[in-house]
């Protein structure tokens, strides 16, 4: 056991550059980019779904189906669909994975705003957009944030598979370790990914706490 940790340490110490750039790729390409894109798409879509019943069914079922495709299969599918090899198919697959939690939470968060509050807002003379901006989104914020946190954690974990399509990231060590039967290399990839996931969840939780008005804290 100790020996294994020694190997891990030596491996990282020998070439810290390689290790750090893998982490950087992982965070930037495999988490920040797909999650941001997913937010840009899923939040508006979730809002629309909460407004139009016909859209609600379509959008939610498509994203649930996407979610049920195994990660590796989805990655492979990207290549088959002509995305080639590299970050692009990985980002696309992770983006698709992130859609559901964010979209579903946006939809639910807005749907769950007390109907009396919505009516009070409208009855007071808010337009549809004003009601969304001043009342519904702020109240749904923590639920939407929970969706973003889930998506982030999914991306960090599933991102380790992206190395199979040549997208880099911490998965590179895992893939190499499996190929070369070097178990310590698995740890070089897996442990930082796990720590990253916990850290990201914690930091996003903190961020949410600071962004949310005091009047909404402590409510789920």
């Amino acid at each position: 056991m100790l020996e294994t940790f020694n190997k891990v340490y030596t491996f990282i110490a020998n070439d810290p550059e390689q290790f750090l750039s893998a982490i950087q790729d992982h965070i930037l390409l495999l988490v920040l980019v797909p999650v941001s894109l997913a937010i840009l798409v899923a939040v508006p879509l979730g809002i629309l779904a909460s407004r139009f019943r016909w859209l609600e069914k379509i959008v939610l079922s498509i994203t649930s189906i996407l979610q049920t495709i195994p990660s590796l299969a989805l990655l492979a599918l990207m290549i088959v669909l002509g995305m080639g090899i590299g970050p692009r198919p990985a980002i696309t697959a992770l983006f698709l994975y992130s859609l559901l939690p964010i979209l579903r939470n946006t939809f639910i968060g807005i749907k769950n705003v007390d109907p009396f509050l919505k009516e009070a807002a409208t009855g007071m003379g808010m337009t549809n957009m004003q009601r969304l901006r001043m009342v519904e989104l702020p109240i749904a914020f923590s639920v939407i944030m929970a969706g973003i946190r889930t998506a982030t954690v999914i991306c960090i974990g599933t991102g380790t598979l992206a190395a199979y399509v040549g997208a880099g990231g911490l998965g590179v060590f895992i893939v190499r370790g499996l190929q070369l039967f070097r178990n310590y290399l698995l740890l070089v990839g897996a442990v930082p990914a796990a720590i990253l996931a916990l850290l990201a969840d914690y930091l996003l939780g903190k961020l949410e706490y600071f962004l949310i008005p005091r009047g909404l804290r402590g409510e789920q």
Binding site: F116, L117, E119, A120, G125, I139, G215, L216
Partner: peptide, 19 residues
């Protein structure tokens, strides 16, 4: 029209995100 008419409901309906 609504901005010129005050509206109070039983469920109070204060916005929890606002002071």
């Amino acid at each position: 029209l609504r901005r010129g008419i005050g509206y109070v409901i039983q469920q109070i309906g204060l916005f929890p995100n606002m002071t």
